[in-house]
Design a protein around this nucleic acid. Structure first.
Lengths: 228, 228
DNA sequence: CGACTGATTGACTGCCCTCAAATAGGGTGG
DNA sequence: CCACCCTATTTGAGGGCAGTCAATCAGTCG
């Protein structure tokens, strides 16, 4: 009765592993559900687990010096986090907080020691983790550059497009997003009022429609062209 | 006639390696000088080499969407860059540009294949590279958070303090920094005029003294307390 | 039909950028 | 030693983006 993953499940962490290797990896961890809004890892706490999101969505945040929370990225099924658990020596603490979205998610979890023990049995795992981390560096550097040159409006556009990719549901009229203005404000690091005003503008340009806590993206293309 | 490193040389990339291991690693690469202002790696170009700065200083930049260059970090002796060369699969291109400072520097260089071949002979190297990359992620995330909450003044203060740590020379009156306003402006991502005005303020508060292309940091402590 | 939370709108403010113009070092050649 | 030039720096005026504050409106749920 080994743990299994959903059919069609793809993860860059497990990429290139043979079926027996995957079994070994899965056997070393356990799968568990997540309650809505559960905080999976908390910034500053010691790294105790490696996670792999199986279903649902989660968001990664970091606290700013002045106490706000800064959205870093969406975590989708197949994404791993807490990769520092794979480090040999005592790793630095988690540097972000990861919180599940409202949906009912599930994750695969490994204890730090178990995870680390896997590396010698499944060498490819280390390679994948390294590649993922490298990629993350690139993403963050890009975000930094973007932030340095983008206006509030452009950041907001980017956040909406990104979110559509990750948590959007295809609908008859366009892509539906279940996000409040406040959430968007946090994600784009923009004030609540700027979000409202900007969405109004886009609304009147027929790029999107909005209702309480929901956004219907009609013309993602036209939004995408805004962040340059 | 094996290559050697300066006495007292410390590098987080080579940390924990036995002397024979270090010899192996050094034998696989070669040391070379750098002409002032030489560009060592260029953003967007394919990753062909792994570098380890031996002496001197270099700076890492990234291009922003609107064509400016965004300072990311100082590279000091012992720091490695181009770590993506250690990845097994075809790595993504360099994501920053690294340019030497005006001083006459030297670096150790490994071809990508040679570097990668070292990993199986010296396993600790992979661990170190992973740790360094993880650390870089943390630094970048911190920079992102800092950027989201800091004023131009605070960013400038931070840049000066950081630079003092890396490229400052101890003098009788304080720490000397060979940086022009323009360089500071780039590094803090602030306008030239803001730099000038802010430095004037700090000058009159006796925190620092400035002359053409040079800054004398009298009270680093008081500057450091600015970035909160 | 309240009550509460989310969204809107307008007025005002402030940080920091842009632009223009003046000033000051510091080196060079005569 | 001095005149000159080139570059670094300074200073002021003006403006714009986006944030804060206050008050109102709208949607949903009990």
């Amino acid at each position: 009765m080994s743990a299994t993953l959903p059919p069609g499940f793809r993860s860059r962490l497990l990429e290139g592993l043979t079926p027996p290797e995957i079994s070994t990896v899965l056997a070393a961890g356990r799968q568990r559900g997540i309650s809505p809004n559960e905080v999976l890892v908390r910034e500053g706490h010691p790294v105790t687990h490696l996670f792999l999101l199986v279903t649902g969505f989660a968001a990664s945040y970091k606290a700013t010096l002045d106490g706000r929370k800064l959205f870093l990225r969406w975590i989708s099924p197949g994404d791993a986090f807490g990769l520092a658990a794979l480090l040999q020596t005592e790793p630095p603490p988690y540097f972000t907080t990861v919180q599940a979205a409202v949906t009912r998610d599930s994750v695969f979890v490994w204890e730090r020691v178990s995870a680390h023990a896997l590396l010698s049995q499944v060498p490819r795992l280390r390679e994948n983790a390294y590649a993922l981390t490298s990629n993350y560096v690139i993403t963050l550097a890009g975000a930094l550059a973007a932030r340095a040159s983008q206006t509030a409006q452009q950041r907001l556009a980017r956040v909406i497009v990104e979110s559509a990719r990750h948590i959007g549901r295809e609908g008859p009229e366009g892509i539906e997003l279940g996000l409040t203005n406040e959430q968007l404000a946090h994600m784009a690091d923009v004030s609540l009022f700027t979000v409202s005003r900007q969405l109004s503008d886009w609304h009147s340009e027929r790029i999107l429609a909005k209702s309480r806590g929901k956004i219907l993206l009609r013309a993602p293309k036209r939004l995408g062209s805004q962040h340059f």
